[in-house]
Amino acid sequence: MTIHDDLQAGYLEGDAEAEAHVHSCAECQARLPELDSIREVLADPASWDEPDAGLEDRVVGAVAAEAAPLAAPISLDERRQRRRNVFTARAPVWSMAAAIVVVGAIVAGIVAANGGAPKIDARFALSATALAPHAHANATVRSTNSGFEITLDVSGLPRAPAGSYYQAWVKGPNGLVPIGTFHTGNGKVVLWSGVSLDRYSTVTVTLETEGGDPGSSGQRVLVGELPAH
């Protein structure tokens, strides 16, 4: 421990001599912003509070409730592989997969082409967030020559306030891609993705302000995971 270390410790203690030294010594001055930020934290009563002992169980319970509708845990590699499969394989493969894979209510199955009915490639659900706790949406994905048509059946989402709108996004390792905007809170909403969904894992809906930053506001009102099957 050098004399400077010793005096920097004294500075944190609030020792007057150490303070005088730190302010006049070039070596110690270089560390002054760091020392001041530490002192600021120490001086804030909020830094010393302890959470309630029951918080751990509440946190674990809240996450368990969030996780419950999802399929059984699988590895990340397996998720990525399954996600690639669903959007790149052809209909016969989907039919076979649908016959052997049982999927949950939210992470949906794969349905093969069926007469004149629209071909649904995948179904999934979007869940509420703290910003819109009653919102929910069921979604279907259709692969077309123009791109991927994603239809949301939305409920419990308030109409976007004046001067604002909802924007949907797909998110993955390649970043965030907008797939459409809307303002209604309930009913069918048709969105279009021009990017291949096998490279994206999540669909989100955010609340945006007209004339605001073109990037996402981060104010998510619905979140869903693209099916990995």
Binding site: A46, S47, D49, E50, P51, E56, V60, V63, L76
Partner: peptide
């Protein structure tokens, strides 16, 4: 990332107090 739900309790035990302190400030 592997979807291990048991990780949440371990994450809380490791970082819960720190998360609380950041939020409390």
């Amino acid at each position: 990332a592997g979807g291990d739900t048991d990780a949440v309790r371990d994450l809380y035990r490791e970082y819960g107090k720190l998360v609380f302190t950041v939020a409390n400030r």
